[in-house]
Amino acid sequence: MIQLHDVGVRFGARQVLDAVTLSVPRGGRLGVIGPAAAGKSVLVKVIAGLVAPTTGRLVIDGIDVTGFSEERLAPVRARIGMLFQNYALYDFLSVEGNVGFPLVRRGEPADRVATRVRDRLRAVGLAGSEAKLPSQLSGGMKKRVGIARATIAAPELVLYDEPTAGLDPVTTSKMYDLLRADHERSGATAIAVSSDVAALITFVDTVVFVYQGRAHYQGPAATVADAPDPVVRQFVRGALDGPLVG
């Protein structure tokens, strides 16, 4: 279970996150939505231990990991897979090298890594792209390589930062079908940030609406369009008129 208690993050004079409290049960799927620059990506990076909270506590499976050093965070991170907004594919490695990297670093045998990489690439629709370099891929392909890398080591928690940004609607649907099937099979917890609310709510069961650095609203994904909060309703429906600022 992931729990954030009054988490705040400040970069210089800017308060990016402010007193965010939320919890995600084991196996749960949380969608993070909100306007641009609301702090969604920072929230995910806090959960991954990549950004240290200025205030508050981060608890993972009952262990308070706030303030852990990089060394102490290592075993926690080993249980997490993450897809980055900008893919974060390693330029110096091929597609095969990128996807297999988490397994190679764990010391898994080369033949096992190769088999797993082939399976994962087939699952994301990139079979035969093993030898390509990231610079030879389109944005959508990079995204799929990133998803393959984030999930290859069967992590207990997968964080997706904009998993379908830049993908066409059909590929977006395919991608969420893939994520859904993956998570139903593995039972892993998922936290996904996306601006494509309509597609996201087909995958997650709960959403949190981050607005001006705060967890402004939390509720079931299925009914978010009819949320009692007018700011959330306006954002989800994409209405021009309403109380939403920014």
Partner: peptide, 10 residues
């Protein structure tokens, strides 16, 4: 974010 990508993989 490649450096963060490494850190995320411990």
């Amino acid at each position: 974010e490649q450096l963060d990508g490494l850190r995320a993989l411990a």
